[in-house]
Amino acid sequence: MTQVHDAPELSVQQRAGLASGERSAVLAVVRELPRPRLAAWLATPDGAAVLHDAFRRMPTFYRGGAADGTLARWQVRRPPAEPIGYDLALSPDTCTVRPADPGVRAAVTLTFDAAGFVEMACAARGGVELLLNGHLQIQGDVPLAMRMERMFGLDAGAAR
């Protein structure tokens, strides 16, 4: 695993906000940190723990809306550290999160830079904005990808 040198330290309050799983607390930290500093911190082991926890929490935010058996792959780049990836098995009412399995074909793959993933997860930025600014790439079922914000309660200014 690649070690990150000169990673920025965050305050106790900033770390707590990012680790809280509360969108409003994460949003407050995202708004005060410069994007490069957030990205660098997310490449650390502590940042990886926050990202893994965000994926574990995704089922609690799921509102439904996918066809039964839909598989969406989410990948988070965090150079120079290893990327993080999860598959979300979606149904009309449930979301199951598991480590990405490259041997299984996903209906859609969303690839974020680490800061972009956190920005979307707390509704600081929408998917279209991230896509237009190069912080999100989509492969596969684009209409499904465009519905993801609504499926996870991030649509129309949820926390903006």
Rank of each mutant, 00 (worst) to 15 (best):
R37C: 10
P8A: 11
G47W: 00
T111M: 04
G134I: 08
R98W: 06
G126C: 06
E32C: 05
D155P: 00
L88R: 03
Y62F: 09
F117K: 00
R35G: 09
P92A: 14
Q139C: 01
L110G: 03
R56H: 15
A100W: 14
T70D: 09
R73D: 05
A100H: 12
T70K: 06
A67D: 14
G127R: 01
T96L: 15
P59N: 13
D113R: 02
Q13H: 10
E149Q: 12
Q75G: 07
R150W: 05
H52M: 11
L154M: 07
F117E: 02
A72S: 11
S20E: 13
E9C: 05
D101R: 15
D46K: 03
D101P: 13
V30T: 09
F112D: 01
N133G: 13
V128L: 14
D141Y: 04
L10D: 00
R31N: 11
P45A: 10
A54W: 05
T111Q: 15
D101A: 15
A43R: 00
R98I: 08
F112C: 04
W74M: 09
F112H: 09
D113V: 02
F117D: 02
Y86Q: 13
R125G: 00
A39T: 01
A107C: 04
Q13C: 04
P79M: 08
D113M: 03
A66D: 04
D155G: 07
P102G: 12
A16F: 07
D93V: 12
V50L: 10
S20I: 00
T94I: 07
D155A: 15
S11D: 12
Q13P: 04
R78P: 05
M1R: 10
